[in-house]
Each structure stands twice: as structure tokens, then as C-alpha cells.
């Protein structure tokens, strides 16, 4: 069992194997994500009841909260890959770190935009500089910094390591985002689902939220694999295995 796992890990570390496995997995991730999204959206937009205070405006939660969770989850994935790239100098870890950044930036942008659209009718403003909103904006800049750094360095191996360092340094921002609503008083409300006692959301509203969160997670997995195999092909395009791919003939 353990040997099989180690074997699998080593094969994933080899670009041609990764290219083949990811090509087989990605459609499943994305297909399942789309099915769950359709179900979650129908549940969240049609079946779930209106909120006692916010009316139907609260339905933005079904995209805002999963996007915000993913913005942090993707960052942690990127940082772990960056750490592996720095310590073990694994080519595949470099690829994974570099390709996670634009996806994470997309989710962060979504969290900020949908939150802003929610804030206007509920809070009465599009934007405030409170600790939660500001730290999430810092996260967007961290992602943009990683993308810029990757583009600025010509040497792919060096770029992978530089990105790893920036990603690891930025990890401090993740607990700040999460705890900002508890450490400081903010306009943003406290945590609903991830607090220690029972979530303060009715189950009929919580279930579609969790379905959407899983769907976003799978969508991230699928698009990450697609971007990573592109990056592999870009880096190894003049290797024999890439030249001999059926799609290249």
C-alpha cells in the first residue's frame, strides 16, 4: 500500500506521467463540478427559503462564500507547492505553484466583487477599509505579485523558486483574513459556518452552500490540472516525449 503511494507520488513528479494522468482526470473534475454547481444553484436560488432579515439578497452567499474560501484554499495549495519546489527542487511542484496563482486571483476577485455587490444594498456601501476587506484585497495583490514575478523571470526553474518564496511569505495573510473579524471590530460579520459551536445558518440554507463549496473546489482542481499540463508542455515541448504525443503529429 505504502509502496504504491510512493510509486504514485514519484510518477506524478515526472512530467510525462503527470501530463497523461492529468489529461484523464481533469474532465472528471470539471464535469462533476458543473453537475454539482447546477444542483447547488437550483437549490440555493429556487428551493432555499428567503432570509428573515436580508430577503433574497442573501442568495449571493452561494457564490461569495465558496469563492472566499477557495481564495484562501488555493493560496495554501500554492504555498505548499512552493515549499516543495524550494526544498526538494521538484519540477512538478514549481509548475503547480506557478499555475495556481491565476486561478486563486480569479476566486479572490470574485469574492471581492460579489461581496461588494452584496454590501451595497445590505450595508449601504460598496466598500469600506475594514480589516476583513483590506486583508482580502492584500491577498489579491499577493496573487498578482506571484503572477508578475513569474512573468518577469525568463528562466523557468528560477521563476518557480522565486514564486515559492513569495507564496510562502504571503502565508501570514491567511490567518489574518480568517481571524480579522474576531481580532478587530469590522463591518464584515463574524464567521457563520466555521465557528466552533453549531453553524448559525439554517440547514436548508447551509446544504446548498456546502454543495457549491465542493463544486468550486472540484472546479479549481480541474482547471489547475489543465493549466499545469499546459505549463508542462510549454516547458518540455522540445523533449522527445512531447514531440511523440499523438496530438503533436
Amino acid at each position: 500500500m505504502f509502496r504504491a503511494l510512493v510509486n504514485f507520488y514519484h510518477r506524478l513528479g515526472s512530467p510525462p506521467h503527470f501530463y497523461r494522468i492529468s489529461g484523464r482526470l481533469a474532465p472528471w473534475f470539471i464535469g462533476l463540478a458543473l453537475v454539482l454547481m447546477a444542483g447547488g444553484l437550483y437549490w440555493g436560488l429556487v428551493l432555499a427559503p428567503t432570509d428573515y432579515e436580508q430577503g433574497d439578497a442573501y442568495r449571493i452567499i452561494y457564490i461569495h462564500v465558496p469563492a472566499a474560501w477557495l481564495s484562501m484554499f488555493v493560496y495554501m495549495c500554492m504555498a505548499v507547492a512552493g515549499g516543495l519546489a524550494l526544498v526538494w527542487r521538484m519540477k512538478m511542484a514549481e509548475v503547480m505553484a506557478v499555475t495556481a496563482a491565476p486561478i486563486g486571483a480569479g476566486f479572490t476577485l470574485l469574492a471581492l466583487a460579489t461581496g461588494s455587490i452584496w454590501g451595497k444594498p445590505m450595508w449601504g456601501t460598496w466598500w469600506v477599509w475594514d480589516a476583513r476587506l483590506t486583508s482580502e484585497l492584500v491577498l489579491l495583490f499577493l496573487y498578482l505579485g506571484v503572477i508578475a514575478l513569474d512573468n518577469a523571470i525568463e528562466d523557468r526553474r528560477l521563476a518557480g523558486r522565486a514564486v515559492g518564496i513569495l507564496a510562502l511569505v504571503g502565508v501570514v495573510n491567511i490567518p489574518i483574513i480568517h481571524y480579522s473579524v474576531e481580532w478587530w471590530n469590522t463591518l464584515h460579520q463574524g464567521p457563520t459556518v466555521t465557528k466552533f459551536d453549531a453553524p448559525s445558518i439554517h440547514w436548508s440554507m447551509l446544504v446548498p452552500l456546502l454543495v457549491m463549496a465542493v463544486a468550486f473546489m472540484l472546479y479549481f482542481g480541474g482547471t489547475w490540472l489543465l493549466r499545469a499540463r499546459n505549463e508542462v508542455l510549454r516547458r518540455e515541448g522540445n523533449r522527445r516525449w512531447a514531440m511523440e504525443l499523438p496530438e503533436a503529429s
Binding site: T50, M122, W123, L187, Q189, S200, I201, H202, S204
Partner: peptide, 12 residues
């Protein structure tokens, strides 16, 4: 004046 809503969500 900005409203600060709480973290509770439930049907009416």
C-alpha cells in the same frame, strides 16, 4: 450610516 448585519441566516 452603514448597517452591520450578523452571521445568522434563517427563514422568516
Amino acid at each position: 450610516v452603514l448597517a452591520k448585519h450578523d452571521e445568522n441566516y434563517m427563514p422568516p
